[in-house]
């Protein structure tokens, strides 16, 4: 059994509209991949589908992780297997403090793996210590943990909170969905440093982005271009730079729509 994520000929529709049309990709442990694409190319669809959003319907193809198909698994089961999605638009949960939420999430992911939630995985003091440590890493004030999850968070705070969750859950496959959007350069640097401090030989990363900017901080070995629901080009980091200069036109115009 390997920890690689294999996406095979993925066809996905949302509300009767076909968005992904045969996407294939393989992410091994220790690899950083970037998927770049213009608006409407299917980037977020890919992110949501990997995580198992109920509205995203897989018509054809498969997603394999640790040798097992993820299709048919609920999002929480995928998370407990080691998948993590940093959301482009994190959702607010009024009344649920970030600390209590993280506690529940850590217990779910790191507790006994039968999906038996609510069993403390680590002692409260240890949890607190780790939370404070990770918050310091992301330059977040301790009081932040008592705020309600994503409620009234600025764009930068939301993205930091996403990376904080990643840091606490220690996933093996991380999908960053437009994590750079809405961030100024300082916030982007902090978030990227946070990500880089967590990335290691055990982790596979998929950076989904419109712009090349974030790739100056989180450096991929593989860059793929997504257009009209398919990967239309793959290469090394130079592909991102080329794209930055030439734009997406070449890729979007060649494809014949969908």
């Amino acid at each position: 059994m390997t920890n690689e994520l294999i996406i095979k000929d993925l066809h996905v529709q949302v509300e009767n509209k076909l968005i992904l049309k045969g996407l294939s990709l393989r992410i091994r442990q220790g690899e950083i991949h970037a998927i770049m694409g213009p608006n409407g190319s299917g980037k977020s669809t890919l992110a949501y589908t990997l995580m198992g959003h109920p509205r995203y319907q897989v018509l054809k193809g498969d997603i394999l992780y640790k040798g097992q198909s993820l299709l048919g698994l609920a999002p929480d089961e995928r998370a407990r297997m080691g998948l993590f999605l940093a959301f482009q638009y994190p959702v607010a949960i009024p009344g649920l403090s970030l600390a209590n939420f993280l506690r529940a999430a850590v217990d779910a992911v790191k507790g006994d793996q039968q999906g038996n939630n609510g069993k403390p995985s680590i002692p409260v003091t240890e949890f607190r210590r780790r939370l404070n440590e990770k918050m310091a890493l992301l330059q977040m004030d301790n009081s932040f943990a008592q705020r309600y999850l994503n409620e009234g968070f600025s764009g930068g705070e939301k993205k930091r909170a996403e990376i904080l969750q990643m840091a606490m859950l220690e996933p093996e496959i991380v999908i960053l969905d437009e994590t750079d959007s809405g961030l100024d350069i300082d916030a982007l640097r902090v978030v990227a440093q946070g990500v880089n401090s967590l990335v290691g030989p055990e982790m596979g990363v998929l950076v989904i982005t419109h712009y090349q900017r974030i790739l100056n901080y989180i450096k991929p070995q593989f860059v793929h271009i997504l257009a009209h629901g398919q990967i239309v080009a793959s290469g090394g980091p130079e592909l991102a730079l080329q794209l930055e200069e030439e734009g997406y036109d070449r890729y979007t115009k060649n494809a014949n729509g969908g």
Binding site: P54, P75, D76, F84, P90, V91, A104, A105, L169
Partner: peptide, 8 residues
């Protein structure tokens, strides 16, 4: 979905 994506 958001909470479930965190294993809950």
């Amino acid at each position: 979905f958001y909470l479930q994506s965190r294993g809950i």
